[in-house]
């Protein structure tokens, strides 16, 4: 231990670590006080988050009758899920839409983050640009979804513009109420969550390193693949976790923009609950939970976040 740290650090840095809980240090919140303070939060999350999720797992094994469920254990709902092509299709659709939207947010968002994080020299300007990108996050999610309808429809803004500039002769139907519209909508809504973390990681790169690499004759491609990309990877992972969690749990965008063409697992849950098929909805819920768990675990494999952040 260096001299400096030994005299001051015990008080500030070392103290919280293994200090034996001798009658919780008065004044300074000791371990007892800490537990007292954390208890309301822990109780809240246990009762209203953990218990409900366990309830979903439990109910997925209940018996479903036409309008009710009863706790007689059965695997019927699970069998129904894995034997119905509708539901397996929906599972596949969910995974497919997730992968496409994830790729789209990355492709669309990365260059924007690159410009904000690396190419803008003024720190104030780059913060301002980031704020401009984040502001829509604070407006109504459903309105943002809905706003795509007059954009993409047969008589929507995009079709009008395309025809006006003579790019197309007839309106394109496939823009709205299709898988494409769902993808466009989700990309626009969730791309912010990709741009933010990536821009943050990029802005932490020391500009001098980039200058030095350039002075040594490295082209941008080489600087990008050797320095920028690896250093931004934690941002990509964080952004991917945000986007994945949100897209996998989605149902509103597809409800609003797909015209019932795209049925995600979330949509199945909503319709099943609507027709009081609680046990079945629970099966879908458990499947969704498992998928999300796997996706997050995989993403965390890519980068050790604790070390990088």
């Amino acid at each position: 231990m260096t001299d400096k740290s030994a005299s001051r650090a015990p008080a500030k840095d070392l103290a919280p670590a293994p200090a034996p809980a001798v009658a919780a240090s008065p004044g300074r919140s000791g371990e007892g006080t800490a537990w007292l303070l954390i208890t309301p939060g822990v109780i809240w999350m246990t009762l209203f988050l953990v218990a409900p999720i366990l309830m979903i797992v439990y109910v997925s094994f209940w018996t479903q009758t036409t309008f009710a469920i009863n706790p007689t254990p059965t695997l019927d709902s699970w069998r129904d899920f894995f034997t119905s092509s509708t539901y397996l299709n929906s599972l596949w659709t969910t995974v497919r839409i997730w992968l496409i939207v994830l790729a789209a947010t990355l492709l669309v968002g990365y260059p924007a983050a690159l410009f904000i994080g690396i190419f803008v020299r003024s720190r104030n300007l780059s913060i301002a640009l980031l704020i401009i990108c984040v502001i829509p996050f604070w407006t109504s999610f459903l309105i943002r979804v809905l706003a795509w309808r007059p954009m993409l429809g047969r008589e929507g803004a995009i079709n009008i513009l395309l025809q006006k500039f003579g790019i197309t002769s007839a309106p394109i139907d496939v823009l709205l109420f299709s898988q494409l519209s769902v993808i466009i909508g989700m990309t626009q809504i969730y791309v912010v969550f990709m741009v933010g973390p990536i821009a943050f990681m990029l802005s932490r790169i020391d500009r001098n390193v980039l200058e030095a690499a350039r002075d040594l004759g490295a082209g941008f491609g080489r600087i990008f693949t050797r320095i920028i990309l690896p250093l931004s990877l934690p941002g990509v992972v964080v952004g991917s976790i945000f986007v994945s969690v949100m897209v996998l749990g989605e149902f509103a965008t597809s409800a609003a923009l797909s015209g019932r063409q795209v049925n995600l697992l979330g949509n199945i849950i909503v319709t099943q609950v609507g027709s009081l098929k609680w046990a079945f909805a629970s099966v879908v819920g458990v499947v969704l939970t498992v998928i999300i768990g796997i996706v997050i675990a995989m993403l965390l494999r890519v980068v050790d976040l604790k070390r990088e952040l």
């Binding site: 001299d3 005299s7 001051r8 015990p10 240090s25 008065p26 004044g27």
Partner: peptide, 22 residues
């Protein structure tokens, strides 16, 4: 008087009551 790491700050903190002695 004490060099860094001599425990002098800790001593003050114990006297003040910020730390409880073992």
């Amino acid at each position: 008087l004490g060099p860094s790491g001599s425990g002098k700050t800790t001593l003050l903190r114990v006297i003040a009551g910020f730390e409880v002695p073992d």
